[in-house]
Amino acid sequence: MIPLSYLLMLSAILFTIGVLGVLFKRNTIVIFMSIELMLNSANLSFVAFSRYLGNLNGQVYVFFVMVVAAAEVAIGLAIIVNMYKNFKSISADRANLLKW
């Protein structure tokens, strides 16, 4: 049996890498991929807890998270396509209309 702490550690590492990607990358598509990484790490800790508490609810939540992630990716990529139409670039620094 794998200790719970190892799984949580892996989940935390993956989440941190995702946060780094969102913070430091400029390419909007890669930022979206990093968001997927973060969602996945949250899923991993859900499954780990569901395994160790002997409870199936965590896995059902993972199912819902996957549905939300699919919807979010579709909408986000449509927004990226619109952004490319407007700016001719997908750099996150070009979308600075709301910047103070």
Partner: peptide, 27 residues
């Protein structure tokens, strides 16, 4: 099925459709 099959195909489609060569400069 969902992530590697559907979502990543969507990502690759968008990368293919958009010209992303000009945004390789990092912060």
């Amino acid at each position: 099925l969902v992530y590697a099959g559907a979502i990543m195909v969507l990502f690759l489609f968008i990368i293919m459709l958009l010209d992303v060569k000009h945004t390789t400069k990092e912060r």
